[in-house]
Nucleic acid binder design. Structure first.
Lengths: 197, 197, 197, 197
DNA sequence: GATGAATGAGCATTCATTCAT
DNA sequence: CATGAATGAATGCTCATTCAT
């Protein structure tokens, strides 16, 4: 009663975390309610009480994960003093977030398509727009001042994040073994090399 | 590229192509035998006669897709005279293959994890090893001759293919609209910039 | 007809009325506690506090509905001076009650079987017996005095009420559109025609 | 293969008959697929193979039942030479059909509302229109020739069938014990009394 | 009296797979 | 090689009911 029922807040989180594991191990479709139930310790009814259906658990997971990442990035960009440092920060923030939340990162990478197909509300889409708006606001003036090389608009994110993302996918699925943090500088450098005027 | 092999003729091919669409639209798990049956025009019995079970349809699709791509790449590398041209060829070959087989590309990108979980035979794994061996054979001497910048081994493929791959994912799922071929040079340049000594 | 009894006041009545709508729309089995909760504005706990379970809501509804109708009929018969007028009164009272309480009438007609299966207490059965006893007491002397045509005992109620009841069912479910009151005389006449000696 | 697979025709019928019993005993909603499966001896999959879902079993049952009854009535009317005999035939045909197919009759009477709510295709509605059209074609000329008393159009069917229907409901649910056939003449007479000019 | 989170048995339905023809 | 009826384990989800606050 005091400040958000601790009981149910706990339940909700327990369910979410159990679902994260299950979805990563079996995919959203492959994971069963029963698996999530067993892992979370909640009852089936409780699962449905809190989320309504399986897809909405996935949606909540995706949304919360992305918000957490977007938050980290915003804070990093806010602190970046010059352009080069900002670009490097983008890569480092990404790498750190992945390393700190590998399960969440895996889910977000590998379930984007499926989750997007679910998002009736277009909640994710809205979140995404806000995110890109913030990114653009940081970039625009720097492109104008020619502190960043001119590229087709649609290529920037791929050029900056592509290598990191590719390695992250491999690392998160065990196809690459070296901790991604060891390569953060390599990828940050690659990004800046590709963008410096 | 060769004329369709006799094994792939008729019914078999129809089923495979129908399955490709279904898997891309619903995922391997989400697609049902009934969907594939309807789209292919074959009967349930015929599906099982040709492939044994659903997973093996996915496996066949993946294997054939990858082999076709590997073939293209081998041919391209064989023709590449110098190192820079080779690196550029890698990107261009990738881009062209994606543009010529978008449905197949989508499947291969988005179902890798699921298919890998299926591959009891480790057939894919073997194919992959052959592929990487060929790649290494092309690269090694050029790294030794210092025609390519020294990077941690595990980073090369991410640095070369990451941006292209990232854009390809966005394009194939409709999140980016400009034809990937228009950016082939941009990504080839980025790759070479990152690797030139 | 008396002012709502204290037991029926407030919450209890709100729940009953909400349940009536829900039962009519979805049937007793098809209506859910959640529907009744939403329509009544009460909480789940409150529903159970007042009625114990879903079936007992239906039972209460049926019992109160029937008692109200029986009451109307008793009063009507008490005022009937001669036999023909009495028979006509029976039909008119029925028609009026239906027209004044269409929702209640629908429930009572269409849920009789289901409610009967519930009535552990046989409360309804007892009510019914009292009702038929009263009817018989009004009829018997008139049959003896030959003021009513002799028919097999079990046929009387069907002959008197059948046409009205049939039309009522059709009207209450929208299969007939003309207000049943417009035909009250037609059906009263048919009843008397069938019974006059 | 010869003339409609006897195997599956049998299955279909077995399922239908099992469902009829279950629906009558528990209502459409109350009957479970498991009950029908057990009683019919078919597998769950077979049930769904033939009917698609539970509601469509009910629909098939209703449709086939009504068609059978409509057929009987058509034949009876076709043989009726004069008007009085025709009216009596309507009642007798109804009584006989009920007595010969009591389970089917119960289902049709007590599930009409629920089945109507299911009938997306309005198949029943179409059947019904054909039925009423045939009835009207028999009646119209006789009303014009004044061989039948003038009543409001919507009242005819209630006046003719109401008493029989009311008794049938009571008999089929055990609230009346005398075989309905014993009263066929009583109800036929009542109908003709109400309609003779 | 009121509230609503939690429970879990029960249900309709799906779908990969088999096999007789 | 082809067909499609049959199978039944597995699954997502519902909903009456309880009970701590």
């Amino acid at each position: 009663m005091a400040e958000s029922s601790p009981r149910s807040a706990g339940r909700r989180r327990e369910i979410l975390m159990a679902a994260l594991d299950c979805f990563n191990e079996h995919g959203i479709q492959g994971a069963t309610i029963e698996m999530i139930r067993e892992k979370s310790g909640a009852s089936v009814g409780s699962l449905y009480h809190h989320f309504g259906n399986k897809e909405r658990i996935a949606l909540a997971l995706y949304t919360e994960g992305m918000r957490d990442y977007h938050q980290s990035l915003s804070e990093a960009l806010a602190e970046a003093t010059d352009t080069e440092q900002g670009i490097r920060q983008i890569v480092h923030t990404f790498v750190n977030w992945i390393a700190n939340h590998p399960e969440w990162a895996r889910f977000v990478f590998y379930s984007r398509t499926q989750v997007a197909a679910i998002d009736l509300d277009a909640e994710i889409h809205r979140d995404n727009q806000n995110y890109w708006k913030a990114i653009r606001e940081w970039f625009s003036p720097r492109v104008k001042k020619r502190e960043i090389k001119i590229l087709p608009m649609e290529c920037y994110s791929s050029v900056i994040m592509g290598p990191t993302q590719d390695y992250a996918r491999r690392w998160l699925t065990g196809r690459a073994s070296t901790d991604i943090r060891e390569f953060a500088d390599v990828f940050a450098q690659a990004a800046w090399d590709a963008l410096k005027p």
